[in-house]
Design a binder for these strands. Structure first.
Lengths: 228, 228, 228, 228
DNA sequence: TATGAATGAGCCTTCATTCAT
DNA sequence: CATGAATGAAGGCTCATTCAT
């Protein structure tokens, strides 16, 4: 995990050198707007977010936003599109060369996903997409296709690897994959929905949650011979 | 309908006997409005749902809605309040008298929940609450307190029952409970968000999903001695 | 001309009895809005007229306008549609039974048109349509078809009547018709465009203008035998 | 270009020799902008024309336009000012030396006006001024003063010449002049408004129209003695 | 009590105008 | 001078809410 390529898909966090005002920013604008929009859409929902807020958060005026995005809706789509992790191919390659046990691989996948997606700002889009799916069915379908499906494929391979090696017992793969996806989706929804409204006593620690979850699931996946 | 297990929390679905139109409906109005609102809020979100639509779906005029609910926001709160299952106490009693194995109990809980909550019209409020949590933090907190917590307590007891009897191995109970909750929440979100946008090939069968999920988790919960 | 049926196509000028506020006005609203819109569109043009002004002039709020017309553009179309004179059929019948000379008939037509169209509030739509033709080609085509054409047909019949009776000499009828139309259109445009901006010394008296115009044209139309 | 009959007021149509790009164009800029603006204003109206379009059509950037014209309104005024024919003095001189009959002179004036004004790009300003008179009263008054009045004076002289020579009968001169102006204004309005929206079957041929119009009017102007 | 016409605050979007480069 | 990114006032349109009937 250490040597992995940089974090988030697009990185504009460092406002390091305030060089030439105009020209430099011009290229940065769309990204800054998308970041601002992501944060606000996730927090308040699409409808309740005013474009003026987004613009203000990106440090520009309302009009400027419309230079880069023809409408609020297109901004939304851009937010989703831009935050769709293309990391799956990288992960796919990582999987090919993985040498440890499949149980370890499952555990690694889950934690890795959390660290790279779940903890990043991009984590909000899943919540966003699920919340706004009713209003943007195409977006939801698109997300399903571009994010859920690839992730699903990756995990299927992981489980097949384990079954092929005899480490895992046979299982209904398609549903078992969802057993891995479900807690992660839950974690995201929780983080962005209930967590901010709950007292500290009821906060979930993601890493512990994932650990527990994986341990339990692996208990059901590992072949009896591979006793623990 | 009489001998059936307690259906939905409130039932106005059957327009069976059109007795006295006026009088009967008068009392039913708020409930009909809440049902209509629930359906629309879940489908389109709070902001994108017009009160006029809600009224129309309930068969009344826009003005009438405001006789029963002082504002759209209050309508929302009423929707959540009204759909909060008070079934937990009933389930609690059921648990006390349950005699089968704890593994069976877990399985029973999950399926029972799905049949009574997940499949009902009320299933949407969870999606609703999570989606709108950003806009209605009090509602989210309220939901957490009135629904999640009791459910959590119930499941905790189930697990403790298994551990106490030696059927389950020791485990971090709080997180293990979330291992049971997570897939159910995921299922709800899925049903109301992605499912309507996905091709048939990618639809989840809830029962199979729950089955697989429970089997895998139980694999991790059951004590080694209780080998399968 | 005195005994002619009522003036303007639709008459809402008399706010006589302020009976019941709500109900009575409801039916009057669209008409009041159309009248207000006509006046403002003619005066300032389509784009420079704010819907709020129209509403204010009709004595309602901005929102009310949109109850009756889905958009400013539809309001514009309604203004044109509503002001399209259906008087042509009545004139057509009048023509059939006319017994005086064709020269008199021509003169009568011109003055009659001025009194019934030119002087009415509806006179502005011609100016409006011509001014906005570039932005509303369909409207212009519609107007051409529903107003210009019927008027053209009527005048053609008048000229044919004169030629058939030998009162007029043969002439290129289509263009001769435009010789009658042109000064009337000019008069309208003038009234709504230049007149309000010109000093009194340069105002045209419509009746004198029409008189002169008709006299001159008839000079060219009358057969030589019918010497004056 | 030197020996040619006085074309349009300003001519930038021929991009013939692409000499020194920069320097030559620099001087031409305002004119190119005015031409572009004229075309667009006539086509779409003042309000519906975006300055950016004008700039683009003139091949410069939006900002450049504002170097030459302080505001869109000033651009409009410049368009009108620039297109005001100073040809009246030339025509006035032509009139002094004209030797043919006054009837011929009238005919000549009308056709000449059409060829030099009506057919040129500048023909649109009349339509423009009349359409936008409500929004730009000063412009309308200015136009009246600088264009209509001189033209009116010229035609008055023509008629007076005919009356003085006994060729024309006495007539109310001021209104008779408008009898000549009206069809020309109508023709312009028609060309720029209805014509583009009408089917070919209803197109007017300007020359035939003018011919017919003049013939008819002359019929009413010529003294009886001067029988045809 | 039920209705639905009316309201007006609010938001998205446009576009003339400015100004740093 | 030329550019085009940025601005922000203005205006079309929506919709929750009110209230006379």
């Amino acid at each position: 995990m250490s040597a992995l390529p940089p974090q988030s898909v697009h990185d504009r966090s460092d406002e390091a050198e305030p060089r030439q005002r105009r020209s430099r920013r011009k290229e940065a604008r769309p990204g800054e707007l998308i970041d601002a929009a992501l944060a606000l859409f996730v927090e308040k929902g699409f409808a309740a977010t005013r474009v003026e807020e987004v613009a203000a958060r990106a440090g520009v005026s309302k009009g400027t936003l419309f230079i880069y995005f023809p409408s609020k809706e297109e901004l939304f789509k851009a937010v989703v599109r831009e935050n769709i992790s293309g990391r799956f191919t990288a992960w796919g390659e990582e999987l090919e060369t993985y040498t440890d046990s499949s149980a370890e691989l499952v555990r690694y996948c889950m934690h890795s996903w959390w660290e790279q997606i779940g903890m990043s700002a991009a984590s909000g889009i899943t919540k966003l997409v699920m919340s706004e799916a009713g209003m943007f069915p195409e977006i939801a379908a698109f997300y399903q296709q571009e994010v859920i499906e690839p992730g699903h494929d990756l995990l299927r391979k992981v489980l097949q690897r384990g079954i092929a090696s005899g480490e895992f017992r046979p299982m209904p793969i398609e549903y078992a994959v969802y057993s891995l996806i479900a807690p992660m989706i839950f974690l995201l929804m929780w983080k962005h929905s209930m967590a901010p409204c709950c007292p500290p006593s009821q906060q979930l620690d993601p890493v512990t949650f994932i650990d527990t979850q994986v341990s339990l699931l692996l208990g059901g996946m590992l072949a009896p011979s591979a006793s623990r």
